[in-house]
Design a protein around this nucleic acid. Structure first.
Lengths: 354, 354
DNA sequence: CTGTTAGCGCCTTCAG
DNA sequence: CTGAAGGCGCTAACAG
């Protein structure tokens, strides 16, 4: 035992200049090669599972590597192999349940595929976004990018990503494969559902004006209302509880109350619900309420919230699968896909089973 | 303009063997050097802000680099400099608001410090945890590790991390710097608050038995009750709404109802609240309710939830700051720190201002 | 099957 | 102040 590791032990003890890591020196492929009496090439082959290595040699190499606790240096490996085994994820933010769920879906697939995740958020700032994208170069094999801002100037237009990428909830652009939640059809369906339940004055609490999904949902609401004779009634919102709460109060104070309120997402619907609760207005008896997303809390509030279910984790998972396919075969046809959403009827609209 | 980029343009057009990345070739330091009529060494120095470069030369180099959209290749840089500019974040999971908030805090500091984040979750599986830690070697300069499972065998004991690391909400072990939410004192404070508000039969909805924080909160509850004459009354829970809901129902059905319920976290408190709502039991009139965490919804439910505020984003931010200090100076003394929590009194305990 | 060798792109002495 | 040159650790031809 001792004899085998003498060389390395000596190096460990008398490392001339301790390279970082708290004075530790790391074991390289050379150390393994020397201990196993083979060349570095053979070690590389053995460790990477190539076929052209004699069984006994492979065995010996693996043992030595294990004993020395060798672990290949990632930077070196990816510098020479030109692959990083890492996927870059660039998001507008990391805050809230949406991103959390998204990451969960992405993470599951990444783990399954043995890929690492380099995450970065740009806080809605186009400059930071550019910087984040640039910084990904040489660190990742592909990119998952979410850029939901419907700015006049497409921040991606000028960015040569220089690598395969998939767009998430960002519309379709730059000839990249894209995957979007089908917000438009979802919102239209919900609006029609409310109409068919007998509501005619349906108010809509919108999302941020520069957000792609918010835009699609508003469009779906308007189109859903189109032939009904009902006029659109839109309040501003921000996708958070606070703005839903504010919108709820505003609705109560308006001269003519709506029959139903459709919030562009569940968090706003909940904020609105609490505003109604505080004012003693009963849901659904006096006003019906609907949301969008089906967050976990939607089923626990009282009354249960009617909403559109969006499987966000599936969104992330599917996006990464698309990217992996692109990575495996760059000629995979590029398409824009939609993630289906589903109407979930609960008590908040007054037409639900108990 | 054209003349300057002729060389590179030619290369881009007639790259002999397109090296990965969908057939694109990337611009290297050599390209910049050639365009700027200097050596690669000078480019390197100029771009890295070293002082020994003539102002006009630096200017020219920066211009060329900008025009060519040059961005250094990470793997190459970290191979030669032995630093990755990346922090590894190893978490038990990526699911839910807690991790989302944690990541937000970490991300803010990382961005501020120009560091990237390599995230990985191990789904509560010790083997996966080991694999994740091993895979971090050579890819990151330091580690933020959350390992809240109070298993008999410390999964970290055998792991030579081989690099600076900070433990998050994982107790104190392995001689690593640690940062923990002060769950014990928080729970004790809350329990005493409930007692002093006149409640004597206080039930506690516990968290997962193998979770460090859950354990600390339970301990705080017991100690808070210690000299009061009240007996502990503990129900199992899982930190999610569903288990809080179940516990709430169980409490209602028990022969002797409690005066107050203290849930080990807000999600369970909300689940419990909805169970009470459904049963028509009024909070706080019939039963007082308290939680722990102060998630955003806590202030929007009706009645507002009395809870202990935990600044999770601050937890992440502080942990990364500690790690950065460790990275900057390995001799920084190692200590276990506590993140203070604060009592937030709302209406759910019946002693609050409206 | 195995060893030798030439880079991958960048940083960093060491001479000028 | 600047250029030339030697690696960093690993992979991938190319010869044996």
């Amino acid at each position: 035992m001792q004899e085998f590791c003498s060389d390395v032990c000596k190096r460990l003890q008398s490392a001339p200049s301790a390279p970082s890591f708290g004075g530790r020196v790391s074991i390289t492929i050379k150390d393994v090669a020397r201990e196993a009496n083979v060349s570095v090439a053979t070690v590389s082959r053995a460790l990477n599972g190539h076929e052209n290595v004699a069984p006994d040699v492979r065995q010996r190499v693996l043992e030595v590597a294990d004993r020395l606790q060798y672990s290949p240096h990632h930077a070196a490996r990816s510098l020479s192999s030109r692959r990083t085994q890492t996927i870059g994820v660039v998001l507008p933010d990391l805050y809230g349940e949406f991103f959390s769920e998204l990451m969960r879906g992405i993470d599951a697939v990444a783990r399954e595929a043995g890929r690492h995740l380099l995450v970065s958020s740009y806080h809605g700032n186009p400059d930071e976004q550019g910087a984040a994208l640039r910084a990904m170069r040489g660190r990742v094999d592909g990119l998952l990018l979410m850029s939901p801002f419907v700015a006049d100037a497409d921040p991606l237009a000028g960015q040569a990503l220089g690598m395969p990428a998939v767009l998430l909830n960002s519309g379709a652009r730059a000839g990249l494969p894209a995957l979007n939640v089908d917000s438009y059809h979802g919102a239209r369906t919900m609006t029609r559902h409310l109409l068919s339940a007998g509501h005619s004055r349906i108010a809509f609490i919108a999302g941020p004006t520069d957000n792609f999904d918010a835009h699609e949902r508003l469009r779906g609401y308007r189109d859903g209302l189109a032939d009904s004779g009902s006029a659109p009634w839109v309040l501003p919102g921000d996708f958070d509880e606070a703005s839903g709460h504010a919108a709820g109060r505003e609705l109560l104070e308006s001269g003519e109350r709506p029959d139903a309120v459709f919030a562009a997402n569940d968090m706003m619907a909940l904020g609105c619900l609490f505003a109604f609760n505080q004012a003693g207005v009963r849901v659904p008896h006096e006003i019906a309420l609907a949301g969008f997303d089906d967050i976990p809390l939607a089923r626990y509030v009282h009354p249960g919230l009617t909403t559109m279910r969006v499987d966000i984790a599936a969104l992330g998972a599917r996006a990464l699968r698309t990217l992996m396919a692109q990575l495996a075969d760059p000629d995979t046809p590029v398409a824009a896909e939609r993630l289906e959403v589903a109407l979930v009827v609960r008590q908040s609209c007054g037409v639900a089973p108990v």
